[in-house]
Design a protein around this nucleic acid. Structure first.
Lengths: 188, 188, 188, 188
DNA sequence: AATGAATGAGACTTCATTCAT
DNA sequence: TATGAATGAAGTCTCATTCAT
């Protein structure tokens, strides 16, 4: 990862908090990064190319963090740690998370095809963790692990953003407990 | 509500299923509504004015539907009906729901100040229903009704869109049961 | 002159101080006059029709006032009174005077053909007064009365506006004396 | 001054001879200059930005020419040369001069704040020349140099345009003599 | 590896005018 | 006599992209 690409990512992330991806201009991104406009095209070929790379980079970061709890001995504790880590990531990269929420379910949005496999990657991490919980019999009858994983991912995203935007005085621990309370519906 | 404004809303809603807000052109909206482009500006002043009015209109529609279950004798059944109605609305107005998800947590986005009170309205309907559940002792200790209401609204939105976009073969009843399963964590 | 037409004239005059005729919108004029837009078209047929009528009305007013000094026994005193009256008119109807200055020499401006004969009318009044001065031998050799009349009209307009806009603390008497000082170059 | 800006100025100046500022379109200006429409916006930000810069450019050109006579040994001859140069400039850049006359006394017009200091600059050049005339005792008692300078500038503008528009058969020498005849009222 | 002036398709917006009431 | 919703031609402006340096 060159310094220039890194700076362009950071500039895009910073600006994306306030506007949609479509509203972001290459001019603004370049100015924020302190490089010339042509540099974006030199490094990424197009605006879409930059966004594409950014989405992969950001989701990769998230996946990496979520995977850190894969080897927690207690599956339920692992799930709780995963939720906590997810909340922390979203709070730290709020602009990126807003992008995800904006673009994830937009179809046939410009970046939908990029996001589809990235979503798969993250959902599958959540799914693995849920499967471990199921394996020790802590999931009620009738819960489909894959369905629950998808739902948990979306809920995590949305609850975390709601916390940041509309309930900023709540603590992360408090929000985490709310989600876990929901989860107890699954994990008894 | 004049016929012309109504028609423009419906045209925008229809087109919004396929594209994002930024991708919609006033030309297309006017053509779809069967009026001249100037008519949009006569009625709403600007494209943003149209979107603003549309958000109020659409959320009003959703709120109206959700309120229909307020007098259900059994609070838990009322909550379940509310969830089902919410899913149906989102499936019917997918484009609009995508807009909601895109803009709701964008701050200081262009429509954030419009959406803030609209969100309050919907969340408060959910909250009232949850409160009735709490009043009959069907909510566990430690669940804050207002927090749970906000979370449930976001989750509903996101789970419904995920269903439409990534799991289109699932039935609505199936999705409803998934959400209710989650809810049982709250409503025992 | 009906009340409605009068009100539309006054509204146009008021708004024309700040903007050019081309920048004035029929919407704004109607709103300022407190009538509906269609009323402008009912009364004047078009925007150009309104402006046309306004120009004729305003120049008619000016001509009427300037003519009041035609029978002053002393030609030089009559000329001085004419200058004074002209200054007073321009100060009173500044917006209209700004229109005159803006459009008079714009060619092939939209209202040029309307203004040409109106200018003739005013210049000829000035010319008559100058001719009476010439008849008593108070004009130097070589001064062409018609040329001097045209020049005096323009100068009057411009000096008066300059007074109003850039030197508002000067008194009208002071400005009149300045112009008369110039005139003494002609009228010895 | 880049070549592109220069060409846009010249194109605008050329087109301004035939129409007013409001009638000029960016499309036409770009076409006349042989550049793409976007180039106007790249260089000046907006149509108003172009006009603003053009006013500064044009008045700078006028000021430069008027200053050329500052070192004429004979003050009265210098004043006459200044008048002659002014007439020549206005005849050459008629469209620009029409703009000046249209906007100079419009308050609070869009370009009034731009024109105010530009007018100061030109008036002060005239004033310096008049002062030199006064210093050699060729101005009558009671003539305020600064007032006379402002008046002379306006008169020059208006008489020159009147010549171009309504008396095109007169020669420049003839018009110059008319103005000088007026001036003799001041310069005896 | 980077630049930034230039481009032009395509968007948003204005506004004089019409016409059914 | 007056209204005002609707129109659409014509304008202003944006912005992803290119390319010579």
């Amino acid at each position: 990862m060159t310094t220039t690409k890194q700076r362009l990512f950071e500039a895009t992330l910073k600006l994306a908090s306030d506007r949609g991806l479509a509203e972001l201009t290459v001019d603004d991104i370049a100015a924020e990064a302190g490089v010339a406009k042509g540099t974006v095209y030199y490094n990424f070929g197009s605006k879409d190319g930059l966004i594409d790379a950014l989405l992969r980079y950001g989701v990769g970061l998230l996946a990496e963090r979520l995977r850190e709890h894969a080897d927690e001995p207690d599956p339920v504790a692992g799930l709780e740690a995963l939720v906590d880590t997810g909340l922390a990531f979203i709070a730290e990269y709020r602009g990126f998370s807003q992008i995800l929420v904006s673009e994830m379910w937009r179809t046939p949005g410009r970046w939908h095809e990029t996001l589809r496999p990235l979503r798969e990657e993250v959902v599958s991490i959540v799914k693995d963790q849920l499967q471990r919980v199921a394996d020790v019999g802590r999931l009620p009858e009738g819960v489909q692990v894959s369905t629950a994983a998808a739902g948990l991912f979306g809920t995590l995203l949305v609850v975390a953003l709601d916390w940041q935007v509309f309930q900023p005085t709540r603590t992360r621990a408090d929000v985490r407990d709310s989600v876990l309370l929901l989860l107890r519906g699954l994990a008894r």
